[in-house]
């Protein structure tokens, strides 16, 4: 038997779902362990950060890194793992595009702290105590990682070789990644750097509702709970915002098969700038009553005005990866 390759799995700013997704491989997880030794996986195995320091540079073959970069610790971990690994894979939507926590970029550190420690109804903080990096206590000084102003994607902090999107990556996508790992273990073959381990085109290209699209305008935007959704007709056709046209394929349309519209966790497809601006251009054009003669401006804008929260709707998983990726505090 050949030498096993060495794999590290790390958890940065994330919910843990990505790690669970790996465990969800069930017996397939042994496919990994048969070809690889897991040398670091703090969430599941008994490794400490200290162990990482002890590894030689480039001694880890592949790192699966999930979670976004928010704290100094996330960043250090990323830099450290980059140094120790030959291949760095951004695993999951947070690492790839910032993910759900990336939406925090509409504000900054102060906004997040004010919300979390002061302004919410359940907060009682009369002394305005906020987390600090160093706190002196009698027993000594306690330190915490620093909290950056904004969320970054992994590739904004370190060089990334491959991207495995998904919130979390689906079973099939992880198996695809495993195949790559296996290929590397076998003969050192790797795909082209920068490859996104998913489809290429937008999700509609693999959606089974695709041929139900007509060329009608979207007269009114409704939210999924506001109507009975026909399981065979395109969501857009039913006035429900679906991120399918603005999202990379490869997930296997699992949400859509569960009769829920795509929310965009696979990030933008090839050729797309970012999910939000793409979606705004399409919906801004196509959401209309279509009766454009002798119309008053307010009436005309009404259909798009029903899109209340473009940021939350269109950048649910990818704000830190967008053209404008954080609050710009223009003129302030």
């Amino acid at each position: 038997m050949k030498n096993k390759i060495k794999i590290a799995i790390n958890w940065a700013g994330a919910c843990g779902g990505c790690d669970v997704a790996i465990l969800d491989l069930e017996e397939k997880v042994f496919d990994i362990t048969s070809i690889a030794d897991i040398v670091y996986w703090p969430v599941a195995m008994d490794f400490k950060r200290k162990d990482l320091f002890d590894y030689d540079d480039k001694s880890i073959d592949i790192t699966l890194f999930n979670g976004m970069i928010r704290t100094s610790e996330h960043k250090e971990d990323a830099q450290l793992l980059r140094k120790k690994s030959k291949v760095m894979i951004a695993f999951g939507s947070c690492a790839c595009f910032g993910g759900i926590p990336g939406m925090a970029n509409f504000t900054d550190k102060k906004g997040v702290f004010d919300c979390s420690y002061k302004d919410t109804a359940s907060s009682f903080n009369p002394d305005n105590i906020f987390p600090e990096i160093n706190v002196k206590k009698k027993s000594g000084t306690l330190t915490l990682p620093s909290f950056q102003n904004h969320v970054n994607t992994l590739d904004q902090v370190v060089d990334v070789d491959y991207f495995v999107p998904g919130c979390p990556p689906t079973y099939d996508i992880i198996l695809k990644a495993v195949t790559i790992i296996a290929g590397y273990a076998d003969n050192g073959d790797l795909p082209k750097k920068g490859t996104i381990i998913a489809g290429k085109n937008a999700l509609c290209s693999e959606c089974r509702r695709n041929n139900s699209m007509t060329s009608k305008v979207i007269e009114k935007i409704v939210r999924p709970h506001e109507k009975m959704i026909d399981p065979d007709i395109c969501f857009l056709e039913q006035g429900i915002i679906c991120m399918g046209p603005f999202t990379r394929s490869g997930c296997g349309s699992t949400c859509i098969d569960a009769n829920m519209p795509c929310r965009g966790c696979f990030g933008p497809a090839e050729n797309q700038y970012d999910q939000g601006t793409e979606a705004m251009s399409t919906f801004g054009s196509a959401v209309t009553t279509g009766q454009d003669d002798y119309i008053v401006r307010g009436e005309m804008l009404r259909p798009v005005n029903s899109i209340k929260d473009p940021l939350g709707t269109f950048y649910r998983f990818s704000l830190p990866n967008a053209i404008i990726n954080k609050n710009m505090k223009d003129g302030k």
Partner: peptide
């Protein structure tokens, strides 16, 4: 790269 959404036709 076309995904047949037909919005252009619209």
């Amino acid at each position: 790269t076309c995904v047949n959404c037909r919005f252009c036709e619209t």
